[in-house]
């Protein structure tokens, strides 16, 4: 076979693979949006869900989702970033370091329902939080920790040695070097990791069903101990219970909104990261 022929076949193969992915993605997005977009009305987005009859909305679920995702990211990002810094900058190669790495990697592949049940046992029952936003957010943070640790460590390792040397040669301490020279250079990569984690948190249901619960307070409250059904859980719940005549309609609308929200989150974090990057690098 000639080199040209091989080249052609290779090109067709990878193009077909990319095309297949686009096709699947397009089909899913298309069907969700086609069914769901017509449901999205101001009324749907701003009214409460109803357990008794048709015509419910998703306002409480939107609020709960935002609340829980933000709280879980506030827990997971500092801890994950800290662990990433430790692994990349301080950990000496050895058994303990390998163990930590093995542990994070194993955690990353644990099914989310296991995290959900763990959260229920530990936070909901043992710690006495009950079905609560706090319990849900903490469990969600556990789910996302391995990802954030890994992304942080890799982002820090990707910073060129040049930059570290420059800082150390100026008489900066190791801590100053990490916080003033290395971490600011990782903003872009970290943002990618945080987006992934936030996206996963937005769409997660198995973790939250048994921790944050499947109901919402009937009034708007910031109480972290109140239960908080998120959009993804709601989507699952209306279908599972199937007691409402318009369950399918609500599910369609919720799914469409969830997808739009994910898009907004990833665009938003990207924009924020670029802005931060520019500000750190100087306005130019």
């Amino acid at each position: 076979m000639s080199a040209r022929r091989t080249d052609q076949i290779a090109r067709w193969t990878v193009t077909a693979a990319a095309g297949l992915i686009l096709l699947v993605l397009g089909y899913i997005l298309g069907s969700v949006l086609i069914n769901g977009l017509p449901v999205l009305s101001w009324h749907f987005l701003t009214s409460r869900s109803s357990n008794l009859g048709p015509g419910g909305g998703i306002s409480l679920q939107i609020f709960n989702t935002l609340y829980i995702v933000i709280m879980s990211m506030l827990m997971a990002v500092p801890v994950g970033l800290g662990a990433g810094v430790y692994l990349a900058e301080y950990a000496l190669p050895g058994r303990l370091t390998s163990l930590i790495r093995l542990a994070t990697e194993s955690l990353a592949s644990v099914p989310s329902i296991v995290f959900g049940l763990f959260g229920m046992v530990v936070f909901v029952n043992a710690a006495g939080l009950g079905f609560s936003r706090l319990g849900g957010a903490a469990t969600l943070a556990l789910l996302n920790l391995p990802l954030i640790v890994r992304v942080s460590e890799e982002a820090i390792r990707a910073v060129p040695a040049d930059l570290r040397h420059a800082s150390l040669a100026l008489g900066a301490t190791k801590e100053q070097t990490i916080f003033s020279a290395v971490l600011p250079a990782t903003v872009g990569r970290l943002a990618t990791g945080v987006t992934l984690a936030a996206g996963r948190a937005l769409g997660e249901s198995a973790v939250l069903i048994a921790t944050a619960g499947m109901s919402s307070p009937r009034y708007l409250t910031l109480d972290p101990l109140a239960s908080g059904e998120t959009l993804a859980v709601h989507l699952w719940a209306v279908n599972a219970e199937n007691s409402l005549s318009d369950a399918a309609r609500i599910a369609d609308g919720t799914a469409a909104f969830l997808i739009l929200a994910m898009l907004a989150v990833s665009l938003g974090i990207g924009w924020l990261a670029r802005r931060l990057d520019r500000r750190l690098a100087g306005q130019g």
Binding site: G171, A172, A181, P184, A185, L280, A281, G282
Partner: peptide, 16 residues
């Protein structure tokens, strides 16, 4: 240079 502004680069040492 650090991925910072010109002036931030120069005052990096004194600041630390």
């Amino acid at each position: 240079p650090f991925p910072k502004s010109i002036v931030e680069n120069v005052i990096y040492g004194p600041r630390r």
